[in-house]
């Protein structure tokens, strides 16, 4: 286990951040404790990456911000953008990082192999695909076994087969992890705490466990019916047969339905799926309430 005598890693109280008179973060309050795995979830432009920068002190925000960070060699970062020169080769970057952190090739071998860097080691950074760049970025964030990992969209561009192995790399060790992401499924599997953010505002106080979010506390239904937008011309008929509906990603989620509705959908040849409620549902439910 990580020896950490501090009660928290990050503590934010009423933190706001303005950029060009636009309030990017509004009144954020949270506390990240040692060894917690946090997922910061939100749609595009919600302020996830800005929040990471405020946590790290890269952006000056108002409010009370306290940090108990590990030594620099125990922090692993992958933010938006990369710290590498486009003209250098992958193997040169990796050698520099190994020298900077005094990590031998043998020690990080498993991470190097999981990220499949051998096949791209002779390529220049500027000639890598987005996914390949991401893999190099992940290596530099993880190879030194950091106690605190902060990642921004770590899996975008990574093929699904590799994602499981990389998630294991990130989450198998006891350490503090903060991930800003759109990856709702990964959040459900790996997060201790979820932090929803929408237009710079947090949707509930501090982080909340996946179990709590998926309990009846927010959406009091376990199942939903999913219909593609455009399948039904007059949606008012459907809406009158459910207790709650949400619309996002060109889909309509129907909660609190009964068997009558299913029969009606079948009778009218409307394609639908019946599934469990997800974190996305809770997010959009909270946004709807916010609006």
């Amino acid at each position: 286990m990580i020896k950490n005598n501090f009660p928290f890693i990050f503590k934010l109280e009423s933190v706001s951040y303005l950029s060009n008179r636009n309030e990017i973060l509004k009144d954020i309050t949270l506390q990240v404790d040692p060894n917690e795995k946090w997922f910061i979830l939100g749609n595009n432009g919600s302020g996830k990456s800005t929040l990471l920068d405020v946590l790290l002190g890269n952006l000056k925000a108002s409010g009370n911000i306290q940090r108990n960070l590990s030594n620099k060699d125990k922090i692993g970062l992958m933010l938006d953008g990369y710290p590498f020169s486009n003209i250098l080769r992958v193997k040169e970057i990796i050698k520099l990082y190994r020298l900077l952190y005094s990590i031998s090739e043998e020690k990080d071998r498993s991470i190097y192999e999981i990220l499949e860097l051998d096949g791209i080691k002779d390529k220049q950074i500027g000639k890598l695909s987005t996914g390949e760049k991401k893999r190099v970025g992940l290596f530099t964030a993880l190879f030194h076994f950091p106690e605190l990992i902060i990642l921004d969209e770590p899996m975008s561009g990574i093929d699904p087969n590799s994602q499981f192995k990389i998630h294991k790399l990130i989450f198998d060790l006891p350490r503090t992890v903060l991930i800003a992401s759109h990856d709702w499924e990964a959040a459900k599997k790996f997060a201790d705490k979820i932090f929803f953010i929408y237009r710079g505002k947090q949707l509930f106080s501090n982080g909340i466990s996946v179990e709590t979010l998926l309990s009846d506390q927010y959406i009091p239904f376990k199942e939903k019916l999913v219909i593609q937008e455009g399948e039904i011309e007059d949606l008012s008929v459907v809406y009158s047969k459910v207790e709650l509906y949400l619309k996002y990603d060109q889909q309509i989620m129907l909660f609190g339905f009964n068997e009558d509705l299913i029969s009606w959908l079948n009778e009218n040849d409307i394609v639908f799926t019946r599934t469990q409620k997800s974190l996305n549902d809770v997010y959009y439910y909270l946004i709807k309430n916010e609006s």
Binding site: D53, L56, N58, K72, I75, L77, L79, D80, G81, P83
Partner: peptide, 13 residues
């Protein structure tokens, strides 16, 4: 301008 400085701040040198 590229934001590389954000990483440099957290390197062990």
């Amino acid at each position: 301008s590229s934001g590389r400085i954000r990483y440099m701040k957290f390197m062990p040198v």
